[in-house]
Design a protein around this nucleic acid. Structure first.
Length: 508
RNA sequence: GGGCGCGUAGCUCAAUGGUAGAGCAGUGGCCUUUUAAGCCAUUGGUUAAGGGUUCGAGCCCCUUCGCGCUCACCA
């Protein structure tokens, strides 16, 4: 075994632990054995014992040492694995003095240990493993960033545990090892994805995968990340949405498709934005945005049932009720009620800009009308939609992929879902007319200008696909991270992403 | 990118411009039903990094790095 860890300058605590590992090896004990004899996880052992305490239960358990209480001739300790926590009881009568000394000399908090013995209850009633044999499974050189723990009312209370957000995100492994509530967040997250898959699979949707590396990006107004294929000498973009590829599949008669995957947007980070995030999109032939609205309510309610067992969710100190139907607010009327501006009365950006200025709203000059409306939504509506709410019927000029509302050329059939003051999802009746789609692309090109990174590039192959005929359909996109935030009661997206993006540390 | 705040021992936190401390962890002892066990003793610091003011800087000033909040940006 090498006697150093070259990547790290070891502090005193780490040197002591490394010395212990080296000493173990010298004494013929492997601090990192290849195999274990673990028979069950801790939760299984406890369940078996409580099911029938009259018979003898012998287990070999593995886990990290979380607390030790040596008391001379006996030692109490707690170990924890991914499923539970249990007390160990070491006694000189059963183990002998040498083994007791070995435990005290070689084992530290955070080490992985394997312990064999039978379960019993101490006189305070705690289920405990009386250890007859034990060995090191993996020595921890760096101490876990936590002191001891205790159990108060069934909850594990870790004292002086890692709490600096930067350290927690950079060393998420330590955060997870030490803060079991963080582990729960990611169980919720996995449950969300599992529930959504089940919901869509049950309704005949086909899960597909489309390119992440795209020669032309589209489907959203966002700045892309750029990369390069060396051999093909071709610039490629990391996708900003799946939309244009998934809708090509409807042309190909895959009538119901969905994808859960990663989108990348080269924009600022915030409590609800991470440069890469997980998105669900589905497309549904022969449906429209009204049907999608209903399916959305059902899907989210189903997810709540599966993951939390309730549709009433506490988020940010407020109770959210995910029972359908969600509140429905028409965009134009919603803005009239919220700020007194009727966007239909201002068909040009200059008119709308004047109206907003008249209300004392700060407006950056030269914004297209769509962006002005977007600002109104953000300022007056989004933050106030705490309970699940659909905002519907958007202006055509901020929705280049959505289909016109019949009889109203300035409005498209689009809705966004808001919960907890935050946009959760976005959906529309999909534009399936190639001539109109081409016109929209050209308009967007004019609106933003050639130098605006957010302009929609013309995707000629997408128009080619649509020209083969695309069935009428509804489409939908939702941020998985944001839904997880709501169900896990986390106010920042970084809490629901295992390794959120952080600036690189400058190491000289 | 702008504004405000923060960065002290492995972890959690103290410290009027005047000798950098505590609890836990660690180390050495005592202790056969404890549970943040207890008791005695004890190690541990380039106060994020660099520069400046001062007799003297963790504290005041400047620069840099990182993080947080917020504004801007963000279909």
């Amino acid at each position: 075994m090498p006697e150093r860890l070259l990547i790290m300058e070891l502090n005193n605590l780490e040197k002591v632990r490394l010395d212990k590992a080296l000493r173990m090896r010298q004494n013929g004990r492997d601090p990192y054995p290849t195999r274990t004899a673990v028979s069950n996880n801790i939760s299984e052992a406890i369940s078996a014992f409580t099911a029938d305490e009259t018979v003898e239960h012998v287990f070999t358990l593995g886990g990290r040492i979380r607390a030790t209480r040596p008391m001379g001739k006996i030692i109490f300790a707690h170990i924890e694995d991914g499923f539970g926590r249990i007390q160990l009881f070491f006694r000189v009568n059963t183990l002998g003095e040498e083994a007791m000394k070995q435990f005290l000399d070689e084992f530290d908090l955070g080490d992985f240990i394997q312990a064999t013995g039978k379960l019993f209850r101490t006189k305070t009633g705690e289920i405990t493993l009386e250890v007859t044999d034990f060995k090191m499974l993996a020595k921890a050189i760096t101490p876990l960033p936590a002191a001891k723990d205790e159990v108060v009312d069934g909850e594990i209370v870790r004292h002086a545990t890692l709490s600096d957000p930067e350290a927690r995100y950079r060393q998420r492994y330590a955060d997870l090892a030490v803060n079991s509530d963080v582990r729960k967040v990611f169980q919720v997250r996995a449950g969300v994805v599992r529930a959504i898959r089940q919901f869509l699979d049950d309704r005949g949707f086909l899960e597909v995968e489309t390119p992440i590396l795209q020669p032309i990006y589209g489907g959203a107004a966002a700045k892309p990340f750029v990369t390069h294929h060396n051999q093909l000498k071709q610039d490629l973009f990391l996708r900003i949405s799946f939309e244009l590829y998934l809708k090509r599949l409807l042309v190909g008669m895959l009538d119901r498709v969905y994808e859960i995957g990663r989108d990348f947007r080269n924009e600022g980070v915030s409590f609800k934005h991470n440069p890469e995030f997980t998105q669900l999109e589905f497309y549904w032939a022969y449906a429209d945005y009204l049907k999608v609205m209903e399916l959305t309510e059902q899907m989210v309610a189903f997810t709540c049932d599966k993951v939390l067992g309730t549709r009433k969710v506490t988020f940010n100190g407020q109770e959210l009720d995910f029972n359908p139907p969600w509140k429905r607010v028409e965009l134009r009327q919603g803005l009239i009620d919220a700020c007194g501006i009727d966007i239909a009365a201002f068909p040009t950006e200059t008119g709308l800009e004047e109206a907003m200025k008249a209300k004392g709203i700060k407006v950056k000059p030269g914004m297209p009308r769509g962006k002005l409306i977007d600002q109104l939504i953000g300022d007056y509506l989004e933050i106030n939609f705490i309970q699940p709410t659909f905002l519907y019927d958007y202006p055509r000029d901020i929705s280049p992929l959505a289909k016109n509302k019949p009889g109203d050329p300035s409005t498209v059939e689009r809705f966004e879902g808001f919960v907890g003051g935050m946009e959760l999802c976005n959906a529309f009746t999909e534009l399936n007319e190639p001539m109109e789609q081409e016109a929209r692309f050209l308009e967007m090109g004019r609106e933003y200008g050639a130098d605006d990174e957010e302009r929609h590039p013309m995707d000629e192959d997408y128009l080619q696909a649509m020209s083969y005929g695309m069935p009428p359909c509804g489409g939908f996109g939702m941020g998985i991270d944001r839904l997880t935030m709501l169900l896990a009661d986390k106010r920042t997206i970084r809490e629901v992403i295992l390794f959120p993006h952080l600036r690189s540390r400058d190491e000289e």
